[in-house]
């Protein structure tokens, strides 16, 4: 599929192709009278890695919570042609339970409860498997959170603020794993990130969400060069 360059306020036909693994159509979500998402249409293709960037309160986490069924949309439609797993903001582990219990609960909807494949991916978790998840470092917790999502054997992972509160070296390590999952296992990724440089650097496409609306979308590299995006999210002029 030939992607358009950066477009402003895209039409529904342009952004939701039939073959999408995940798509939203004019999604509206309200918190009482406040509108959190105001007609969001977006999609993620099979095996694609897509970023969702935007300021605080733009509706990014609300969109993920709606995609994973935690929040009901007031209007619009969601189509998901595969299994979606959500890696939530702040890791959101079960702190009293062990690492292994946390991982095994990721398979609650069905499938294998054997966490060995996760230990192959994150070998350091094997040594921590009997430890309570609440006592782990931030990076280890993020690995457990991703591992728990992987236990659901997903076709797409929605990852919310992966880098939050983690040291850059830890973020690099986890990003490396995420990219490997995408490239080797074909798991699509919808990455919500405050760190726009990081998100645009590893994804092929991106959406900019502002005030509950998609204000821009396009190839990540084009968005990274877009003066408005650069100024708002990458901290300066293009070419700096």
């Amino acid at each position: 599929m030939k992607l358009p360059a950066v477009t402003d306020v895209p039409s529904r036909e342009e952004v939701v192709p039939d073959g999408a693994l995940l798509a939203t159509y004019d999604l509206v979500v309200r918190y009482s009278s406040a509108v959190a998402l105001d007609g969001v249409s977006m999609h993620v293709g099979r095996g694609e890695m897509v970023a969702l960037i935007g300021p605080n309160g733009a509706g990014k986490s609300t969109l993920l919570n709606t995609l994973s069924g935690i929040r009901r949309p007031a209007a619009g439609r969601i189509v998901c042609r595969g299994k979606l797993a959500h890696v939530p903001e702040g890791r959101q582990l079960f702190p009293e339970l062990t690492v292994e219990d946390n991982l095994r609960l990721g398979a609650y909807r069905g499938g294998s409860r054997d966490p060995d494949p996760i230990y192959e991916l994150f070998p350091q978790l094997h040594g921590l498997r009997k430890r309570r998840a609440g006592g782990l470092s931030g990076g280890e917790q993020q690995m457990v959170s991703i591992g728990r999502a992987l236990m659901a054997n997903p076709d797409i992972m929605a990852v919310d603020e992966l880098s939050q509160g983690l040291a850059p070296i830890v973020v690099s390590d986890i990003i490396r794993h995420l990219v490997a999952l995408n490239e080797e296992k074909g798991i699509a990724v919808l990455l919500v990130e405050q760190n726009a440089r990081l998100a645009l650097g590893i994804t092929s496409r991106a959406y900019v969400l502002e005030n509950g609306r998609v204000s821009k979308e396009g190839r990540s590299e084009d968005l990274a060069r877009d003066p408005a995006v650069h100024k708002a999210y990458l901290g300066g002029q293009v070419g700096q």
């Binding site: 009293e96 339970l97 609960l105």
Partner: peptide
């Protein structure tokens, strides 16, 4: 039991429990 762990998970973090399908 797995079921008991799932019950504990609800108390520990209801949001994460919902995300896991509980």
């Amino acid at each position: 039991t797995y079921f008991g762990k799932a019950m504990t998970a609800c108390a520990s973090n209801a949001y994460a429990a919902k995300l896991s399908g509980i």
